[in-house]
Each structure stands twice: as structure tokens, then as C-alpha cells.
């Protein structure tokens, strides 16, 4: 049903926290996502012209890079982009068929491929470009938050995480319940001043982005190297040094 589940107090909101401070833009999360989901709930993640002139395909996670600021104060920021599992997801409410829905139990936004008519309206309604149309199958696809991993009893407890979180070599991706203010992810968001993307549009994304930390540009403890006495043989200061091996 595409009208949204009535929010209950303490609503569970599973999502990702992405740390822009340490993402090095390695694309590991992007290809791990592609790899896992190619055999997962939304399989296949079709590719077009895979060996041709304009290769493209269905990816749930894409890594952009930006520059922030000018000159020396600037820095390069790598920016992974996937579904934010919004609280007010118009991608759900615009859907004419009910194929696009938000789960009441954990807030995950999914597409039911069996009834999607492929009208693409949800992809227009998503400000973040998180919806990927599979021309070949004729249905809309998107990040499932690895619904087939996070509850998967055939996996060891510690492996019940999204593929992109498991793989990230810099631990720039974290998964958890952002509805629970005491969860590790919520605390991290509070501590690091986690941000919403395009808050002005009112989609209230669940996923949060941690802005780059301020650099330790200033010397750890400002020190000036002592100037040695002017002139004179600089070697003399060591002349009487005797050290033992």
C-alpha cells in the first residue's frame, strides 16, 4: 500500500550512516552492492552494452567525487549515493500501483517487482536519484538495504549487515537503527553532527552523512625550532658528544 505506515513512537528506522571524512572513493561498496544484489532479492541488476560503446547498468550505490572550497583550504570529498530510506518518501506515495512501499516494521523502502508497471514516476519523485529503472525487465529497482542479508539466518550474526557496509575498507559506512536515539549509529550522528541531504525538500531521509572533520592544519603543538647561535661552526655543538653503542 503506497500510503505510508502510520509512524509509531520509537519507530524502528534502519538505515546507513556514511562518513564523508574517511571515504576514499574506492568504489568497493559500489561493486560489492552490485555483486551481492546481482544474486539477491532484486536480481538481476541488468547491464546494457556491457562490452560496447555506452556501457551502463543498474547500480544501487554510486560513488561521486566533489571538491569543497578553493585553493589550499579546499579538499576533495568522495560521496557515495544510495537510497536514503526516507521517512517521507514521495517515491512511495506517488506510486499508482502500490509496488513502491515502505515497510512498517523497519522503514525500509522497497519495490514489489511483480506488480510494478514501470511508469518511472517514483524515480521522478526521488530527489536523490536512488531509483534505477531496469529497461530489460521493465520494472523499477533500488537499494533494498540488503533485506536479504540483514535478517538472514543462514549468515553468521556478525555478517548480517549490508554488503556495502561489510566491504568498506575505511569503515566509512555504518548500519543501524536511526529511530533509536541510543543506537551506535544515532550516537555517532549526534557526535559528528550528521546531516540530511536536501532537508529543504522535506523527505526526512533516514540515512545520514557525516561531514569531513576539521583538519589538524595547525601544528599539533606550535613549536619553533630553536635558532642556533649565529655564525660559528655548527658542528661544534656535537664535538664533545660521546655515545655508547
Amino acid at each position: 500500500m503506497t500510503d505510508l505506515p502510520a509512524p509509531v513512537p520509537g519507530q524502528k528506522k534502519l538505515g546507513l550512516v556514511i562518513d564523508l571524512d574517511i571515504c576514499v572513493g574506492c568504489h568497493a561498496c559500489a561493486s560489492a552492492c552490485k555483486e551481492w544484489n546481482s544474486g539477491g532479492h532484486m536480481a538481476p541488476l541488468t547491464d546494457f552494452e556491457p562490452y560496447g560503446g555506452e556501457p551502463s547498468g543498474v547500480w544501487f550505490n554510486r560513488i561521486h567525487s566533489f571538491e569543497e572550497g578553493d585553493g589550499d583550504g579546499a579538499r576533495t570529498v568522495h560521496f557515495p549515493r544510495s537510497c536514503l530510506h526516507c521517512d517521507e518518501p514521495a517515491c512511495v506515495t506517488v506510486c499508482p500501483t502500490g509496488a513502491s512501499y515502505k515497510r512498517a516494521e523497519d522503514g525500509i523502502v522497497l519495490v514489489n517487482q511483480d506488480i510494478c508497471i514501470g511508469c518511472k514516476l517514483c524515480s521522478w519523485a526521488c530527489p536523490y536519484g536512488a531509483r534505477e529503472f531496469d529497461e530489460d525487465v521493465g520494472v523499477m529497482k533500488k537499494c533494498t538495504l540488503c533485506i536479504d542479508r540483514i535478517y538472514n539466518e543462514t549468515l553468521a550474526e556478525e555478517e548480517r549487515l549490508p554488503a556495502c557496509v561489510m566491504v568498506c575498507p575505511t569503515k566509512a559506512r555504518h548500519f543501524g537503527d536511526l529511530g533509536d536515539p541510543n543506537s551506535a549509529v544515532s550516537e555517532m550522528v549526534a557526535r559528528r553532527g550528521g546531516k540530511d541531504l536536501m532537508p529543504e525538500l522535506g523527505y526526512r531521509p533516514v540515512n545520514k552523512y557525516l561531514p569531513p572533520r576539521r583538519d589538524r592544519m595547525a601544528p599539533l603543538a606550535p613549536v619553533a625550532l630553536p635558532q642556533e647561535a649565529e655564525g660559528g661552526n655548527r658542528l661544534l655543538r656535537w664535538i664533545d658528544k660521546v655515545l655508547s653503542r
Binding site: 566533489f66 579546499a74 549515493r81 532537508p199 569531513p212
Partner: peptide
């Protein structure tokens, strides 16, 4: 606003995914 960046100044795209 789309990237939650800007504290250091103007934001520019460097590379597409």
C-alpha cells in the same frame, strides 16, 4: 544542500560515478 557540504566554500563536481 545535496551533498551536505560547503563549510569550506563552493562545492564543485570532480568526477561522476
Amino acid at each position: 544542500s545535496a551533498t551536505a557540504l560547503g563549510r569550506r566554500g563552493a562545492v564543485r563536481i570532480l568526477e561522476r560515478p
